[in-house]
Amino acid sequence: MVNKKAKGRVGHIVLLIVLGLLALVMFYPIYNQLVISLTGNEYIAQADGTTIIPRGITLQTYSSVLSIPKVYRGLLNSLFITAVGLVVNVVLTSMGAYVLTKRDLFGRNFFMVLIVITMIFEGGLIPDYFLMKDLHLLNRYASVIMYKAVNPYYLIILMRFFDRVPTSLIESARLDGSSEMRILFSIVIPVSVSGIATISLFYGVFHWNEYFRAMIYLTDEMKYPLQVILRELIISMEKASFVGATNYLQMSTTAVTLDFKAIKAALIIIAIVPILIFYPFVLRFYVKGRLQGAVKE
């Protein structure tokens, strides 16, 4: 009996170690980038995948990287696209979800089918591109902001939150003569804060991480969001076509002779930081939202 208990305890410790190692495997690659980005220029040559403590800690790499016009423009573009996109997304999705939560609305089922079809079938990349061209949205922020402005999955998730708002609350407001717009924005949305938070995070992460549509719709480099710049640096660097950007670096006033490895690491960290800032909220709402809605996003 005692033996069995001891065996169970050893088993549990092994389990904890295995899971701890897994967490390490998930975390270490990101941490390594942080270390490299903080390493002082004189030590950067020795810093590699196994460096655990940065030597000559400095924020020099960050300040230099952020002084590259392409990069700081990219950061501002990303913030702009994410912020404006988020407002458009949340307003439109709320309006859609609010109307569709009214079960006895004539034509509701038809609207639902119309929306569900878009979840399983799409025109595709090239027709999407031609649409932007025909709407004269190419090289405009609007093309990226409006892309997937209402995500059908998120719409359905929000509907589940709106469903929980007591009908009596809405009906009595209607009797008082409040307009539908007013009911939505001053009753339904305020009592569904967690639903709004959930889809805001969904959309926010989507916009912040989006690079592909920006890459193909926008032609002016100065309009690129951070992810596109990052992609240019990371992917192109491996192919030595990064030389152009290096010249750029040397032209900028604050630039010292920066190491590529460090630039890349700093940019990766910059792209992760906003996610980390919102991570407590992400854990609180996003994870639950996943369970609320469709299995796949």
Binding site: L19, G20, L22, A23, M26, F27, P29, I30, N32, Q33, I36, G49, V205, W208, N209, E210, Y211, Q227, L230, R231, I234, I235, E238, K261, K264, A265, L267, I268, A271, I272, I275, Y279, V282, L283, V287
Partner: peptide
């Protein structure tokens, strides 16, 4: 809770970032 919080994180990174991390890894 701690393990879970850490292992969910990579899901929120873009593939651009993940590609950068893996290329260096």
């Amino acid at each position: 809770k701690i393990v879970q919080s850490i292992i969910y994180l990579p899901h929120f990174l873009s593939w651009v970032v993940i590609a950068g991390i893996f290329i260096s890894l």
